[in-house]
Write a protein that binds this DNA or RNA. Structure first.
Lengths: 252, 252
DNA sequence: CGGGAGGTTGACAATCGTCAATCAGAGTGG
DNA sequence: CCACTCTGATTGACGATTGTCAACCTCCCG
């Protein structure tokens, strides 16, 4: 079943992630690693799925960042989620058949494409795998809800602070940063699309957070958290919505 | 397993709904109807689950309306979903253990409370039921994404029009209205909490839609759709995100 | 060296929020 | 039947957060 060009461990990031969601037996893990897939390198800006198309595969991020976004009539874009290594990007699109949003690469990276039928089959055969994927979907939904509250009821300053906090927590868990600084994979315009603001206002808000010492920015894209407590307070940030396993939330 | 005071058909609205999501055998349906539950009448404003609490039951709406909401630090409320008859209200809360949002009755109504373990068990034993519930969760998430785009990237007029369109489509499917008019279960303040606006602005926006003939309002809570095409256009409304079975979307 | 994408800044406009008063309708007790 | 009260709807005046427009800057890359 396996593609020749890839090793048997390619899907390991996925297995690790799902292993947090539900107890998986050795057989469950082996079955996941044995899922058929095609590895595909993608460039920055490339589309994985387009709104209204029928998706035939589910994708797992192996490296790089991607976003899910929707277009509104005015032509404006709303980014509804950001995905990183190990995450399942469009279970929804392939199970729901007609995609209700697009998925686009934010940076260059690689994905593993798993045929829709293989996902359905493993879910049918292995209840614990199905449960883990279901819980993964539930956590996705929890993040959407938090974003709704963020965009609907917080001002620009809090929205940006909240987004920075979310990266600050999620990146190290995906093994993508250490210590208190990281490189943002988003342009200011993309941050605007994620927070319901404009790029101009995002720029001003970042400057503001910097002036007050909540963050430092060695360069426009790098963020160093100057004062975690104050940043979290400014963003009204409470990790609960990420539903992290106990071990990961020790210090937040 | 069944509670004495309730009939064997009480959960039928749930079975019908899940039956749309995936093929269910007669045994699957019987197993769902046999789920243990407690029927509970609730008053307007009563809480079913509170943020940060541990939920022990999943609830199915039997009558009335409920909302899921989150509070932000300023004390403002964001309504993230509205539920009606037949819908599973907090699968998420019970599987994720710690609730990331509250669930509150919008009107008086009754719910069926199913113990968390019974839900997990039926999902483990019956792959098709698990699949249906999973897909249900995916559709919930699709609605969250549409709301994100609505709140993040549309102006007040479009947000309100979109909300009215969503009710206009969902109510008859739940068997709760006919023809082109319905009674809104939301106060204007609640509409504001659902759209990220203020009640004052909701009021002005409704007047505006009325003046332009997109809707009529025999009384403040009743809505009669005056011109569906123009209302849908004003709200940038596209039913796709509700992922309705083909039979239901004929005329939208 | 030139081009382009993205970041930064200022002046100005507008959507939307705040505050506060008034109104309409439903329920309640006398 | 009539105050009385309470919630929700309505309206106006005013203010502010955020958007628009446009210029310029900076860095990277071919």
């Amino acid at each position: 079943m396996q593609q020749a060009q890839t090793s048997h461990d390619t899907l390991q990031p996925l297995v690790s992630k799902l292993g947090y969601r539900a107890e998986l037996s050795a057989e469950d893990r082996a079955a996941l690693l044995d899922l058929p897939f095609t590895e595909r390198p993608l460039e920055r800006g490339q589309y994985i799925v387009r709104e209204r198309e029928k998706a035939t595969h589910s994708c797992v991020m192996l490296s790089g960042f991607s976003v899910r976004n929707k277009l509104v009539e005015s032509g404006d874009r709303q980014i509804v989620a950001i995905h990183m290594k190990g995450e399942f990007v469009d279970l929804q699109n392939s199970l729901l058949v007609v995609a209700d949003h697009s998925v686009q690469m934010l940076t260059a990276g690689t994905i593993a494409m798993i045929p829709r039928e293989a996902v359905v089959e493993i879910a049918r055969e292995r209840p614990q795998v199905a449960m883990a994927m279901w819980i993964d979907t539930l956590i996705d939904a929890s993040i959407f809800r938090e974003w709704l509250a963020n965009i609907g009821r917080r001002d620009a300053r809090a929205r940006i602070a909240h987004l920075l906090c979310e990266f600050f927590v999620r990146l190290p868990i995906a093994g993508l940063s250490e210590e208190a600084h990281y490189e943002l994979p988003l342009t200011q315009e993309q941050m605007a699309d994620a927070t319901g603001l404009t790029s101009v206002h995002v720029n001003r808000t970042l400057k503001n957070l910097e002036n007050e010492g909540l963050i430092e920015r060695p360069n426009p894209r790098a963020v160093r958290v100057g004062d975690w407590k104050r940043l979290a307070a400014a963003g009204d940030f409470d990790v609960n919505y990420l539903h992290l396993p106990d071990g990961d939330i020790a210090w937040f």
